[in-house]
Nucleic acid binder design. Structure first.
Lengths: 208, 208
DNA sequence: AAAACATGTTAATCTAGTTTAACATTCAGT
DNA sequence: ACTGAATGTTAAACTAGATTAACATGTTTT
């Protein structure tokens, strides 16, 4: 019975793709035909907690939209230290853009820290999709613009805020994410050690 | 005589815009008509050393391509400390993308640290330009993708490299820029104090 | 040529954040 | 219920980089 249901891809796909279409609608208006073309060109996929969507050294073949779950994007420095640069939850994107646009081996790793459902845009169909649906190119331009601004602001925060203020900013900006991830991963994201994050939190508890 | 020459805008413009057209050609191929439309929609402007192209609090109305000269993009933190996030020289871009895309007051300042010649893309004609020349939207998508990757890599470097290694990276990546800017600005860009940069440089001199 | 200002150096003291290591706690697997 | 692995806390010693301040050099302005 379950197997049978899996043989009806369009119905299945049209339900799963809803979060993405809702998201796209905030930026551009697609016709029903355009939505159908889009649906036919993307890939739905589930990963289990711990699985890698992208591994350092592999060429990044997809830009991924997260339907459910949570991923961490990180790299390992020369000492093998893990540095998390992004958590992606529902309605966020993940990939190694550098690897994707140049089709060279990735510096970054993307690993699921929860069971995760994704919609993947394969590199082979991306240009075709832009040609067929110029509005999608506009959409991607806009979200990449926003991505650039967000990254720039993060850079600024790292320059100008103390570790404590970066933690408070994160807590305030993404109140739900803190509950979903281990503290040592948050410490890595904030650019500090887990011990120091622990110290910051106990200091904050004393303050009020 | 000089005045007379200035009355021939097209010829003037067609000479000045060459560096931009050469730059665009690396990403997309424009027809002669498209190049002419582009030329008619952008603004050429010169600034003197010290002048501001954008000031914190103003809404950013332009994305600027640098033909000659050098600008610094910076912000002031709560203590009034200046943090430089970008130097833009020939063939680089500058603006406050966050302010530009949302048309809200800028966090950033852009100031010329040399006499600087720019080509400015005004916000009012940008969408029109994208509609008339979809290849330009592709062009901007591509350069913004590259901008995002560069910013992300800078974030990674700030997390994983020591001040010394960040300095060496800069020196290696932009050997000519170091000669054009005062050390205290480079220190600000690297996220360290000018005194510490001075120490790093004297340490490096001792090393070999 | 002097004054004034911008930039650079050196060195002492200070601090934010790291490292190490010992000990709790939580939670999954048997 | 027991064990081991993953995660979290605390505290001491340590280090990268900041701060302050005194002095040096260079470059505009008058």
């Amino acid at each position: 019975m379950l197997l049978l249901l899996n043989l009806i891809p369009t119905k299945n796909a049209s339900m799963k793709i809803k979060p993405l279409l809702d998201y796209i609608r905030k930026y551009v208006d697609l016709t029903q035909e355009e939505e159908a073309i889009l649906t036919s060109k993307v890939i739905f996929r589930k990963y289990l907690k711990g699985q890698y969507i992208l591994q350092h050294g592999d060429v990044c073949k997809y830009q991924c939209f997260v339907i459910s779950g949570c991923t961490k994007t990180f790299f390992l420095d020369d000492e093998g230290q893990e540095h998390i640069i992004l958590f992606s939850v529902e309605d966020w994107w993940t990939s190694d853009m550098g690897s994707f646009i140049t089709q060279t081996p990735a510096d970054l790793n993307v690993q699921c820290i929860e069971n995760t459902e994704l919609i993947m845009f394969p590199i082979e169909t991306t240009e075709e999709l832009y040609d067929k649906i110029p509005k999608l190119e506009r959409f991607f331009r806009k979200i990449i613009e926003r991505g650039l601004v967000a990254t720039q602001k993060r850079l600024i925060r790292n320059f100008s805020l103390s570790a404590k203020d970066r933690y408070l900013y994160f807590k305030n900006q993404y109140p739900d994410i803190e509950q979903r991830i281990p503290q040592y991963m948050l410490a890595s994201y904030l650019g500090i050690t887990k011990e120091f994050l622990s110290k910051i939190k106990s200091q904050l508890l004393l303050e009020d």
